[in-house]
Amino acid sequence: MINSKITNKVAISFIRILAGIVVLILAFLVGYILIKGLPYVSWHFLTSPSKSVSAGGGISGQLFNSIYLLVLSLLISLPIALGAAIYLNEYAPKNKFVSTLRNSIEVLSSLPSVVVGLFGFMFFVLKFGFGFSILSGAIALTFFNLPILTSSIENSLAAVPNLQREAGVALGISKWETIIHVIIPAALPSIVTGIVLASGRILGEAAALIFTAGQSSPVLNWTNLNPFSSTSPLNPMRPAETLAVHIWKINSEATIPDAVQISAASSAVLLILVFVFNLIARRLGNVIFKKMTAGGK
């Protein structure tokens, strides 16, 4: 009796220590990045373009590129992933072919991003002639993102109890309507979590983008909203260096004197960006959940 009590206490303390180590490492990393970087972050830094040789450049282009690429690649990958996940979880028969398909998706999700980047470079940049562009980058990110998103959405759907499906069907609602009106809303909070995790990876991704979206940020005219104009920020055919690529570039081939500061500040901004995106996605998920479940037809 005493023995099992002691073992229990030791085990709990051990687990607490392990959890503490994780929290400490995390807090140290976040704290370090913010303390090092935040002093250099200013309105000027966020809103002025980067400079290639002199000090005092900003990250306006890179910041916008990161967000724009994220939105574009989610626009492409989310509908495909949702459809694939619904098929795999709700309709696919349980046979060899489908389980092979599922395994392939899982293997794909651990594909090194530099491979995805080189593939994108050969295929979209060169073969299709998209050049170093937001479009090439977004498609490469989709390749990178799709397997993870599909798996995570499939898991979210699988976590909805079968009782809900039976309840829908027993009410005389078709399977499709049950999926749309019951299963997806019920899975939504966990789907949003999956999207947030995938987005964090997209925002932090550099290797896949170096070869596809490029490492240069052309001069942008923020008032030009014509997506076909070469100076418009919305033009998907222009090269676009993201924040993560920017950090990688100034660290590997610093041609500016204030590279250390800019890299530190960019890292802090990237971290905050991920955090803000996280908050927005969850808020949006709540709103959609309410829309889908109450009053919605």
């Binding site: 069907v169 009410l171 005389g172 609602i173 809303p185 019920a186 109450a294 009053g295």
Partner: peptide
């Protein structure tokens, strides 16, 4: 089947409300 299951309703062993409001 849709009409059939509207005419023959079913209640299950486990309470299984949808994640909606009572009214919905």
């Amino acid at each position: 089947l849709t009409q059939l299951r509207k005419n023959i309703g079913m209640v299950f062993q486990q309470p299984n409300p949808f994640p909606f409001s009572i009214y919905e």
